[in-house]
Design a protein around this nucleic acid. Structure first.
Lengths: 224, 224
DNA sequence: CGTGTGCTTGATTGGAATCAACCTCCGTGG
DNA sequence: CCACGGAGGTTGATTCCAATCAAGCACACG
């Protein structure tokens, strides 16, 4: 739980990419010179956001360092790739990346490995959206966050930067923001989590939290 | 809406694959000789099913002819690839497919194109799971089904084979089977759909049905 | 020091899940 | 031929969880 390294980014990608330093909330272009784009997260985080109507937004995935996303993986008229925090993002036009893949075995494998992990996490997230109640969804989110980006403090408990605001978390988890806030308060009242400061959360009882989500085992398999 | 052809399957894939004739409900192996597998749908349909507890199942995707799925795209201990109807499925071990991709540009592009479409549809499905009410989910499902596999009858209305049972549809849409049945009855009462027979549905008023789902526009973009 | 934004919390409502009964369509076997 | 039983589907009555609406709070900002 010490900010693991999800696969080093192959060097040719870094060499071919333009580097973008993101500010939180910054939207990354769906097209570059008319082409689809690929974004590789070096640091910080991205999210894919789908807006179907003004009041109906779903955040479909969060991308942590080492992972990547192509704009073609969502209907481009409705979806946006948004930076959730400051960080360094690599951008390539899809034709360039595609050619790299075709000519470079390492990159092809990197792409396949990363997308497989993302797909598997997405499958779990879909189960959460479709079948979990509120507390289970929140617990799942926190457990995943702790496993992906938690850093242990002196007491050995994972401390998580909270990349998403309450409203964004709600849109990720398919919940109402009020309900989400209530549920977080409930977990805090039970002593499972604690707010270090405005946007840092400490998971005080990881095992108890993991026990609240039916996906704990699956997440451990994928990220443990 | 006449059973479109979602991308011809590249010949080398067919040549390298073993062909499986599926019966409905048949589970396809997660591993072949210890390797991950790739399944390409030639006819019929597959679904990816994630079972977290005995009473908590989510069907995360449905695969129509021309599309493909690899077993690595879900946590293998909990997920299964299941045939939903009789059909012809191509199976390759992942290392074989991976090598084909690395050595054959056409296959690499085929893989990227197909997975991008699947990802985009999955994003819409996630929005449905997280944000749509019951009627919107059902309408979305029927519209997508009509666009992907509907065949126009003499009156010009799309007729759909229903690949999933009520319980499976419910697990796909994140709904209770009773509620789903009620909603289908509601659409039938309004004259939007009609049951041709046990597992064939006629969409009598496609535009009215499409008007019920916030995802109509997105689906048209992707499948239209 | 006011102002705005994000977060929390309470009171109320509504929509979907649950539980239970019944129906239809099968295949089976007497 | 009909009785039986089971699976899948439909429908009604009830319960309950989460969305909504509304108010209040904490904090950063100019």
């Amino acid at each position: 739980m010490n900010a693991p390294d999800w696969g080093r980014i192959p060097r040719p990608i870094v060499e071919q990419a333009s580097i973008i330093r993101t500010r939180p909330g910054q939207t990354l272009a769906n097209k570059v010179d008319g082409d689809e784009a690929v974004y590789v997260v070096r640091s910080g985080a991205l999210m894919q956001s789908l807006t179907l109507t003004h009041a109906l937004r779903q955040i479909t995935a969060i991308f942590h360092p080492g992972t990547m996303v192509r704009t073609a993986s969502a209907p481009s008229s409705l979806a946006r790739i948004v930076a959730v925090r400051a960080g360094e993002i690599l951008r390539l036009r899809w034709p360039v990346f595609s050619e790299l893949m075709e000519s470079n075995t390492e990159i092809c494998r990197y792409f396949c490995r990363v997308t497989a992990l993302e797909d598997a996490l997405k499958a779990i997230h879909m189960a959460a959206l479709g079948r979990f109640d509120t507390q289970q969804r929140v617990a799942t989110y926190l457990v995943e966050l702790a496993m992906r980006s938690g850093v242990r403090n002196t007491a050995g408990n994972p401390v998580c930067e909270m990349p998403l605001s309450r409203a964004e978390m709600a849109d990720y988890l398919g919940l109402n923001a009020d309900t989400l806030s209530r549920t977080m308060s409930g977990l805090r009242a039970k002593g499972l989590i604690r707010h270090e400061d405005r946007n840092r959360t400490v998971v005080c009882q990881f095992d108890a939290l993991a026990a609240l989500t039916p996906a704990a085992e699956a997440l451990t398999t994928l990220l443990g």
